[in-house]
């Protein structure tokens, strides 16, 4: 960690003056240095040809450090994955901070290092950014926005209009792990577990699928907020088709399932950061799962259901014991129950 005069962020660090300059020089520019950022211009000049995907996401997770990651790594994974879900190869990220006065400099540094690490691993460059500081009480330690650009994979054709009856629905890993890792350390809800968030970059895994199966990959989505259920509902509504799931096929880690039971949460509505949903042609479904399972990030991949013309706009789940029910959208936040 560089010498930064103060051990906490002060309003001066967002003033644009000397303190801002020192923070950026010693912290940000040194850590993220690349040919675009080193220009220290008002924006980055990029060479991109052809079709690009463009995506933005803001990160406000609490607590900012959680088992398996922190808000910094999450901010990189989130936007990288959003680009990957468009069928793009993520290349450049912007990085915007809103810091709350009083944030510990050591925490800020740890977040910066995680961002660098996550950017390196996922193959993206931080090319432009911004830092603002707000009064104590006006924020929650640190908020991050990342925006990203990536070139479209030459074989990608990802769109809800390409989803067909008969297509198979695949999840690339166990559901609800990230959300429950966060819940396990939230104030007032702490419970003992060794759950780690599975937050990770998925772009190389998606690339592998696009390389191999190209246009047979009809749709991709990372089921972050609202979980698998809410995201599949959006897809059902947008495509005008029905989505039929088999509860027994949905992979859920045993500890996650136990924690959900205890807290009265449904894993299908819990947020994810380390998995994606792929809707693929039935001809390549089994093979897609095989390819996913060869990768550490996809080792729990499974076909969990299929698309049908029946129940248009709805997600219908066959329970383990053979009953059927509609899985709706999450109304507001999932709230823990009484008993």
């Amino acid at each position: 960690m560089p010498q930064l005069d103060f051990d906490v962020i002060t309003l001066g660090h967002g003033s644009g003056g000397l303190l801002t300059h020192r923070l950026l020089e010693a912290g940000v520019f040194k850590l993220f240095g690349n040919e675009y950022l080193d220009e220290q211009h008002d924006g980055a000049l990029l060479d991109i040809t052809g079709k690009v995907a463009f995506s933005t996401d803001s990160f406000v997770v609490s607590p900012i450090f959680f088992p398996g990651g922190n808000i910094g790594s999450l901010a990189v994974h989130g936007t990288v994955n959003d680009l990957a879900m468009c069928g793009a190869i993520p290349q450049y990220l912007s990085l915007g901070f809103i810091l709350e006065e009083g944030l510990s400099m050591a925490d800020f540094w740890e977040i910066l290092v995680s961002i660098r690490h996550a950017a390196d691993l996922s193959g993206v460059k931080i090319v432009t950014g911004d830092t603002k500081v707000v009064d104590k009480g006006k924020g929650d330690q640190v908020f991050i926005n990342t925006t990203g650009i990536g070139s479209l994979h030459p074989s990608a054709n990802i769109h809800t209009s390409r989803i067909q009856p008969g297509d198979k629905i695949i999840v690339s890993g166990e559901v609800a792990t990230h959300g429950m890792a966060i819940v396990s350390v939230r104030q007032g809800l702490e419970f003992e577990t060794d759950l780690l968030s599975d937050s990770t970059y998925l772009n190389f895994l998606v690339n592998k699928l696009l390389d191999k199966f190209g246009r047979d990959i009809h749709f991709l989505r990372d089921p972050t907020r609202g979980g698998v259920a809410t995201n599949l509902n959006e897809i059902a509504k947008k495509s005008g088709l029905g989505i039929h799931l088999q509860q027994a096929l949905i992979p859920v880690n045993e500890q996650v399932e136990g924690a959900c039971e205890m807290l009265g949460l449904d894993p299908l509505y819990v947020a994810n950061e380390g998995i994606f949903i792929a809707i693929v042609s039935p001809d390549v479904a089994e093979e897609t799962v095989e390819v996913l399972r060869q990768d550490e990030k996809g080792k729990f991949a499974a076909i969990i259901g299929e698309v049908a013309a029946t129940n248009p706009g709805q997600v219908v789940l066959s329970s383990r014991i053979g009953g059927r029910r509609v899985v709706g959208m999450l109304p507001g936040e999932q709230l823990p129950r009484i008993c």
Binding site: G264, N311, Q314, V316, R324, R325, V326, G328, L335, R337, I338
Partner: peptide
Amino acid sequence: SSEGACAAYFHFARAAAT
């Protein structure tokens, strides 16, 4: 309520009704 009868029917039982 997560234990309310109306919520149970709203969230889960509409497939049977439709």
